[in-house]
Simulated scan of single mutants.
Amino acid sequence: MSRTIIRGGLVITATEETRADVLVDGEQVAAIAAPAVAEQWVSTADSVIDASGHYVIPGGVDGHTHMQMPFGGTFASDTFETGTRAAAWGGTTTIVDFAIQPVGGSLREGLDAWHAKADGQCAIDYGFHMILSDVGDEALKEMDVLVAEGITSFKMFMA
């Protein structure tokens, strides 16, 4: 796992802004400390980023996106590639997109289709909400399985 230190920036958290250094271990923020304390990290770092004169902010999560989604006879203009690249440039590090159950098909078919669109195309992390298009006993049973796999929200249009 690589260790990166982000030094000299103004760190913005949910509760404050402070001059601090950030230690990133792999893909996770491991610690935030005053520069004097963080000096000890330098010898174990794989890379050091000079953030002097810059803000250091946590990545954003966009919890409602529609990549490559068909709707009303059209499609969303962003693909998983273009949409997540744009998101990354704006500081978004995770999206939660809507996977759609095909009418007459299973929730699994819909989720697998959306994974096929996204896998290997995304510049950032992603997850899915599940849209139910054809609710019946089988779809309701599938929901528990999908929750166990990380799908934590479901949407159903009732109009």
Results as ranks from 00 to 15, higher is better:
Thr94Ile: 02
Ala118His: 01
Gly136Trp: 12
Thr82Met: 04
Ala38Asp: 08
Gln40Asn: 13
Ile5His: 02
Asp46Leu: 02
Val147Trp: 08
Thr82Asp: 14
Ser77Tyr: 03
Gly60Cys: 05
Pro58Asn: 12
Ala31Phe: 00
Gly91Lys: 14
Cys122Gln: 03
Met143Tyr: 05
Trp89Ser: 13
Arg108Ser: 13
Gly110Asp: 10
Gly136Ala: 08
Gly63Asp: 12
Met69Cys: 02
Arg108Met: 13
Gly150Tyr: 14
Lys155Leu: 13
Ala34Thr: 02
Asp137Trp: 06
Ile12Ser: 10
His66Lys: 04
Ala159Ile: 08
Gly91Met: 13
Ser153Arg: 10
Met69Arg: 05
Gly105Glu: 13
His115Met: 07
Leu107Glu: 03
Gly73Leu: 12
Leu132Ile: 15
Phe71Arg: 06
Gly59Pro: 06
Phe80Met: 10
Met143Lys: 05
Ile151Asp: 00
Arg7Phe: 01
Met69Gly: 00
Asp112Trp: 06
Ser106Cys: 08
Ile5Leu: 15
Thr82Trp: 04
Pro70Phe: 02
Ala123Gln: 09
Gly9Lys: 10
Ala148Arg: 14
Asp78Ile: 09
Ser77His: 09
Arg3Cys: 06
Ala31Gly: 05
Glu39Trp: 00
Ile151His: 07
Leu10Arg: 15
Glu109Trp: 12
Gly26Lys: 06
Ile100Ser: 13
Asp144Lys: 00
Thr44Trp: 11
Ala14Asn: 10
Thr18Lys: 15
Pro70Met: 01
Asp50Ile: 04
Val145Phe: 08
His115Glu: 13
Trp41Ser: 07
Ala38Thr: 07
Met158Arg: 13
Pro58Ala: 00
Glu138Gln: 15
Glu16Tyr: 09
Gly127Phe: 03
Ala118Met: 09
Asp62Trp: 01
Phe157Val: 12
Arg7Thr: 09
Phe128Asn: 02
Met156His: 14
Pro70Asn: 04
Val145Asp: 14
Ile95Asp: 04
Met67Ile: 01
Val37Met: 11
Ser153Thr: 15
Asp21His: 00
Ala99Met: 09
Gly105Asn: 11
Ile151Ser: 06
Trp114Cys: 04
Lys141Gln: 13
Arg3Tyr: 06
Glu109Pro: 06
Leu146Cys: 03
Ala123Tyr: 15
Trp41Gln: 03
Glu149Met: 04
Phe157Arg: 14
Ser106Ile: 09
Arg85Gly: 06
Glu81Thr: 12
Ser153Gly: 15
Ala86Lys: 08
Asp21Ser: 03
Tyr126Thr: 05
Phe75Gly: 05
Gly60Arg: 02
Arg108Asn: 09
Phe98Met: 11
Ala38Gln: 00
Glu138Ile: 12
Gly72Trp: 04
Asp125Gly: 10
Ala20Met: 10
Ser106Met: 11
His66Thr: 00
Ser43Asp: 14
Gln101Lys: 13
Ser47Gly: 14
Asp125Gln: 07
Ser43Trp: 09
Val37His: 12
Val29Gly: 02
Val103Lys: 15
Val61Pro: 04
Gly73Ser: 00
His129Asn: 10
